[in-house]
């Protein structure tokens, strides 16, 4: 195993190009578990913690551009008002120790269907910025996930940042786990309401091979919501929204829960998230 510690982003990209099998590490909350428990022995590791721009965020043409090394704690403390859905999701990530180290960039790199950041990123149409020595490209987050723990990155690429619009309306996130803290999602749901464009975005976590959007549910509810007067949707509408979210999931039975329960829970969470969000609209 080799250990690289680039001081600059261009150096990092060059190293990744030269060592495409190298594993990038920032917060270590996924990578170190694999190393400590002997699940993985990468040929090389590239430590990206020396690259200061990765830990920074700013605006880029109306979008927030958030460096891949920004931690969950930073997201909660510095961006909670602009990205409330992601902040709620971040608060459910592990413990303070984990949130102080873990990053959305790492969550994307691992691309676990259970990654807590994914549903809010999907719900607000985020993009992932990938970089290599041959250039930079931006991918819609929905296209980024390609399978369980698989993503659309080329081997010579690193995640530079993600881009997301500041909230234009209420956002919610909800996650089921079998303990009251420190738990990997059995399933999760995110909702982002755009009051200006009258759009609703959704994201489903841990109930399919990749994080998913519930497109039909989004379309349904966009048509049903009383955008003028903001009246509470009927129980039947809320329930239907939940059903459509559940229908969009592709869950399996695994060690954390059953497929049937996941669908059931998604319907409940979707209904509740919508009700909470709309009440705040």
């Amino acid at each position: 195993m080799e250990f690289f510690q680039p001081a600059t982003w261009s150096e990092a990209l060059a190293m990744k190009a030269a060592h495409p099998e190298a594993m990038p590490i920032v917060g270590g909350t996924d990578v170190m578990v694999e190393l400590n428990l002997d699940h993985r022995r990468p040929e090389a590791i590239i430590d990206l913690t020396r690259i200061s721009e990765l830990t920074q965020w700013g605006t880029d043409d109306g979008l927030l551009r958030i460096g891949a090394g920004v931690t969950y704690s930073q997201l909660i403390n510095e961006l909670g008002d602009r990205l409330p859905g992601l902040a709620i999701a971040s608060r459910t990530v592990g413990s303070p120790q984990i949130r102080n180290r873990g990053t959305v960039g790492g969550n994307l790199g691992t691309a676990s269907p259970a990654g807590d950041a994914h549903p809010p990123l999907l719900a607000s149409d985020s993009q992932v910025e990938l970089a290599s020595t041959s250039g930079v490209r931006r991918l819609a987050v929905g296209e980024f996930f390609t399978g369980p723990k698989r993503n659309a990155m080329r081997k010579d690429e690193l995640i530079a940042a993600f881009l997301v619009e500041p909230a234009r309306g209420p956002q919610q996130f909800s996650k089921v786990g079998t303990r009251n803290a420190m738990v990997i999602a059995v399933c999760s749901f995110a909702l982002a309401i755009d009051l200006e464009r009258r759009r609703v975005g959704s994201g489903i976590g841990s109930a399919g091979p990749t994080p998913l959007r519930a497109i039909e549910a989004e379309e349904f509810i966009q048509g049903e919501l009383d955008w003028e007067n903001r009246a509470r949707p009927s129980d039947a509408t809320l329930r239907r929204f939940g059903e459509l979210v559940a229908a969009a999931a592709k869950p399996i039975d695994d060690v954390r829960g059953t497929a049937t329960y996941r669908r059931h829970a998604l319907a409940v969470m979707a209904r509740r998230c919508l009700e909470w969000a709309w009440a705040a609209a």
Binding site: I88, R91, T92, V176, G177, N180, V268, R272, W276
Partner: peptide
């Protein structure tokens, strides 16, 4: 939230 089922995972605000 910490005193409700689900805790900070934000699954209920008292519903159910």
């Amino acid at each position: 939230l910490t005193s409700l089922p689900g805790g900070v995972s934000n699954t209920t605000h008292g519903e159910g």
